[in-house]
Nucleic acid binder design. Structure first.
Lengths: 144, 144
DNA sequence: GTGTTTGCAAAGTGTTTGCAATTTA
DNA sequence: TAAATTGCAAACACTTTGCAAACAC
């Protein structure tokens, strides 16, 4: 049943579980969004990109809802936000420990495993502060 | 002469030289801005902050000019832009090799010398790309 | 004088918010 | 039915831009 949704059967159930497990009501819009994002491949998306994709695949979700949902997903720990330059924010479906390569020519963002970079000699932090995260961005550009 | 400008004599001359050396015309506004920024101490400022400072010290420089000038300074290599989260852009007067600590509670940005962090095992980059920069941000928060 | 820079206000971009209608549990 | 979510449009924060007047060389 429910043959119109491409992420039917198992997939659908998993997404529903995923959202519920995160304390989010599995609405049509969120399921569509989750179906797009959590397909097993790591992704870096912007709100506009996701909105465009949803629109292209005939899932009517307003841009505001895309923003709200992405933020909810982030709050629930399903996504991570990455900022590489002013402009737009990226949402990263890879929530494990890792870093990024930002291509300044194309604006594309790529993951690199945390293990690829070894950081040593972290400085001591101010009193009463703890390290929340280490963000490393390798900025690359064409060497033409 | 020119006793009304607080960064008179030597300082003023240096700033003028600095700007000219960077290929920028030493206008009143740019000199005021440069006087604020290049006093020998490393700073992280936003356009709004600089504009507020200039206004407070009675140097009338429009916000648009602050933005334009900061961008010119950056283009000339006098400043570096740092992005830590969406909101506003920081301009860093420290253009040497270093990294940052971002306090998520206060929104304050601090420098740490590049030597404080040792990065090893950088992954290999895509064909035809070269490493432009490594940006490292230590995100800290209160451990209360 | 000629080309650059300024300042203002308007436009632009990316994101958030207020609120009525809808949907979920 | 009560609470959460949606969608729209308006509001928002930050930044850039168009253009006439002012300025630097």
């Amino acid at each position: 049943m429910n043959s119109k949704n491409k992420s039917a059967s198992g997939k659908y159930g998993n997404l529903q579980t995923l959202l519920q497990g995160a304390g989010l009501r599995p609405t049509k819009q969120r399921l569509a969004l989750a179906g797009l994002l959590f397909d097993g491949c790591d992704k870096h998306v912007t709100a506009e990109q996701v909105h465009a994709s949803l629109t292209r695949m005939k899932a009517k979700v307003s841009l505001a809802t895309v923003y709200n949902s992405l933020n909810h997903f982030r709050g629930a720990g399903l996504l991570r936000q990455v900022v590489v330059d002013g402009g737009q924010a990226f949402f990263d479906t890879n929530i494990g420990s890792h870093h990024h390569v930002f291509d300044e020519d194309t604006g594309l963002l790529t993951d690199i495993p945390a293990a690829s970079i070894r950081v040593s000699h972290l400085p001591k932090l101010p009193q009463g502060k703890k390290l929340a995260r280490v963000d490393i961005v390798l900025r690359v550009q064409s060497n033409a």
